[in-house]
Design a protein around this nucleic acid. Structure first.
Lengths: 233, 233
DNA sequence: TCAAAAGTGTTACAAATACACCCATGT
DNA sequence: ACATGGGTGTATTTGTAACACTTTTGA
């Protein structure tokens, strides 16, 4: 006698549901997006976000985490739901609803071999190829969301390595907002947030003088995440 | 010879997908939520958000619009996706993923007979009954989202009747944020937004002196919606 | 010695906040 | 005549924006 679960909704119709990850990374130069060549028909071989169908025994969020782990080797990544793309004809392969989720990762943390094994490639945001389906729209939406979120949460830090310099943090925010900031005012504002710990080391990779490295104080950082900031730059 | 569409994803599993509407309304006193007694098993007869399964031939957003039209008679309502609730066991009735969508409506615009016919009831936010499944969480999430959004878009207006007074707008924002504002500063800030047209009429329903009615200038209002505001109060 | 990026302070302007009284009218 | 909510102005504080020079050091 097996425990057979009743399906109370048997008269309704089921639909394919997928999740697609908009994976942003930063390499101290520019923000990049991880894409690969689609491996299923239709559009096999074309550039695509990395996604997966949601399986019957996993949550939508876990499906996205699984995708990220499979491709980059990373866990515990900053990831947020973006939006549901649910138009009837968005996918000629079959009716399929997808949940866009954007992730922020430090490129240096990736499992490079794994990424390459999957044929995934970091593309500069300004030179994105045409992506399948509505994936270009998803990227655009994710960027809008990223900018908005960066204005009330210090998420920029999610994209930086553990130790970072103030000039590289500035470059990151300049990439996010696509405008330039005054270095003095930027520094003032960041330090006023009171989440950074200055280290004794310097990073000399981008100047002869070298810039002091900082890391952030996790306690204060988390407090700030909850409380929210008003990061008008 | 009928055109038969190929299903490229036939090896994947389909899942029930629904949408639930978190319908907020304002009656010049407090923000209210529209709920009804669930009409399907399991949990038939318990308080629930109003929702529906997404049908095979409609988009996710249109499903929510349909629900709203069926219950309130309203179209072209302000509605935004909130979040996907995709945990495996969230619904004992069967695996079912739902898209929460929150809507803002002017209570006076509703088709009252239709609302009553469906047994839907406006509940004060502070006296919400226990709702089925994860619906209480959805309401909480929607409120958080509403507050956030109100800080960069003038969405409060969506909840007001066509003609409204500044004190009632203030009451609305006080309800949204659950804090009180200085009437002089509030008025100053709202007028500085430059989206209101002052009318010659007064509303005397809440004072002997009466308060001037305003409506908003749709052109300027829409510009502001796009541009975004910084509505720190 | 010089090129290139890092680091530092002050002033002017704009915006947010705090605050108290008179007005109009229905009862 | 008085109680009730509507309406107005100013001073203070706070935050933002603009701006130029010195420091360090590898090549």
């Amino acid at each position: 006698m097996s425990a057979q679960k009743v399906d109370y909704y048997a008269s309704e119709s089921k639909i394919y549901i997928a999740t697609d990850c908009i994976i942003f990374g930063f390499d101290n130069e520019s923000i990049k997006l991880l894409v690969f060549k689609r491996r299923v028909a239709p559009f096999e071989g074309e550039w695509s976000l990395i996604g997966s169908f949601v399986k019957n025994d996993e949550s939508v969020n876990n499906a996205a985490k699984r995708v990220l782990r499979e491709i980059t080797g990373l866990e515990n990544v900053f990831m947020k739901q973006l939006k549901v793309y649910g138009e009837v004809d968005r996918d000629p392969g079959s009716r399929c609803i997808t949940v866009g989720q954007y992730a922020l990762i430090r490129i240096e943390d990736q499992d490079k071999a794994l990424v390459e094994k999957h044929g995934a490639v970091w593309h500069d945001l300004h030179e994105l190829p045409d992506l399948v389906l509505d994936h270009n729209t998803m990227v655009k939406d994710a960027l809008t969301q990223l900018r908005l979120r960066a204005s009330y949460q210090p998420i920029g830090f999610e994209l930086l390595p553990e130790k970072f310099t103030i000039p590289s943090l500035q470059k990151l925010y300049e990439e996010i907002y696509q405008i330039e900031f005054d270095a003095r005012n930027f520094r003032k504002k960041i330090i006023a947030l009171d989440v950074l710990t200055k280290l004794d080391e310097k990073d000399k990779s981008s100047s002869k003088k070298g810039a002091f490295l900082y890391k952030f104080n996790p306690t204060k950082y988390n407090k700030l995440l909850e409380a929210g900031i008003n990061f008008k730059l």
